[in-house]
Amino acid sequence: MASPDNIVVIRDLTKRYSQGDIEVTALNRVSLNIATGEFLALMGPSGSGKSTLLHIIAGVDRPTSGECHVQGVDVARLNESQLADWRNQNIGFIFQTFNLIPVLTAAENVELPLLLTQLNRSQRRKQVAAALDLVGLSDRSHHLPRQLSGGQEQRVAIARALVTDPALIVADEPTGNLDSHSAQDVLTALQSLRRDAGKTIIMVTHDPKAAAFGTRQIHLEKGELS
């Protein structure tokens, strides 16, 4: 079922939320393959289930039914602490609101996920420098988030997502809070991640211009792929 080229294999994935009597189907029997090295743009109107799908793939949410394999691993079968380890090793997260820790410098923010690894201090430092270099922010490593522009903050977040060298990077509207110029920088950075570092990227976006940076665009509509 999982071809070696497909990093993500999704079958009949359904997610329902029930609040009292009302039941919301956020995802309805979604099936999807994502090939290694793809830059997938996931589009769709608000409330169509984009974030929900992304969260399930990234192992921070669990499906109601169906399967989601990432690199051959059935994510839903892992327990909480296995999932945490798995995320640390396999997933890079990028959020709409950057979510950097305000009291840490750019370099320290990037270093955070590495604190969970076996790397020693100098190895960590080397990897942080490489990641910041990749997003073009080597000269900002000692700045605090509030001393950076929004676009720079988001690029620091990208560096944080890629510093552990994960196979899959997920980004939920990474340009949603940015002006078009900064958005361009961020999207270019993501694009080069795919091209130069061979990462697979899943990006949720509302913006067709942003989606155009991807290698493939798919649309969700009321929890179903169209």
Partner: peptide, 16 residues
């Protein structure tokens, strides 16, 4: 709270 959620997403476990 939000930062702690981010740390969780990055792979920090509950006990950490």
């Amino acid at each position: 709270f939000r930062e702690l959620a981010v740390l969780k997403a990055l792979g920090f476990r509950r006990r950490e």
